[in-house]
């Protein structure tokens, strides 16, 4: 399990490493074990995504199609690239005049990371950013099967949560007026929008 693995790595790996004295072969073998996805019994513990020509081609295609992604998703992709975390919010209004600039920044950051890829594995920030793009297209095209290519090895729990959220978003247009009323205090607890604004912004999801 992940908690057990975390405990072993946190408490035992430093002791083990401290006892090694210039044993480069063992260190090299240990590095291989830590990197190799086959070292982890469960799929949910796979840690890195190998970079293949197919993966790179898929990233380039996704970057070419960034123009078709709305501002909210673009901002989220950029956040992943710079490693900034934030609580998801129902509503976000980026300055529309900066959209073109944002697309260029995202493309440039991705290409810089790709140019620096070492050891043939996807860096975490790029993998998470591309997963955001993937999630957006899944949501937009209403298909879980849009891409068999997964950029980041999310745990089974996280992948299941993502699918639950997608299913919930797809159900939104079917909600009756009364149900929407119930949703409002949850999504907009400190009402910033008028009723119409709320419904319009909800439709954008």
């Amino acid at each position: 399990t992940r908690p057990l693995l975390r405990e072993i790595v946190t408490y035992h790996l430093p002791c083990y490493l401290a006892k090694l004295d210039h044993e480069d072969v063992i260190m090299s073998e240990l590095s291989e074990i830590l990197i190799n996805p086959g070292s982890y019994q469960s799929d949910s513990l796979s840690l890195v995504t190998p970079v293949s020509p197919l993966l790179l081609s898929s990233i380039n295609q996704a970057l070419d199609r960034l123009d078709g992604i709305p501002d909210q998703a673009l901002v989220a992709v950029n956040r992943k690239l710079i490693g900034k975390t934030s609580m998801p919010k129902f509503w976000h209004v980026p300055r529309s005049s900066s959209r073109g600039h944002l697309i260029e920044i995202v493309r440039k950051r991705c290409k810089m990371i790709i140019a620096r890829i070492e050891e043939g594995y996807m860096p975490k920030r790029l993998a998470k950013a591309m997963s955001m793009v993937n999630l957006y297209w899944k949501q937009k095209l209403r298909s879980m099967d849009i891409s068999q290519l997964e950029y980041f090895p999310f745990s089974k729990e996280t992948a299941s949560l993502q699918n639950d959220v997608l299913n919930a978003l797809w159900l939104l247009p079917k909600l009756q007026h009364d149900d929407l009323k119930l949703l409002r205090p949850i999504l907009d607890p400190d009402p910033k929008f008028r009723k119409m604004q709320f419904r319009v912004s909800l439709r954008k999801y």
Binding site: L17, I35, E119
Partner: peptide
Amino acid sequence: TINKLSNGALQSVAKIIS
């Protein structure tokens, strides 16, 4: 000592303990 691990291995360690 941990710096002797390769970058990929360090990335794995960081992910495990994060």
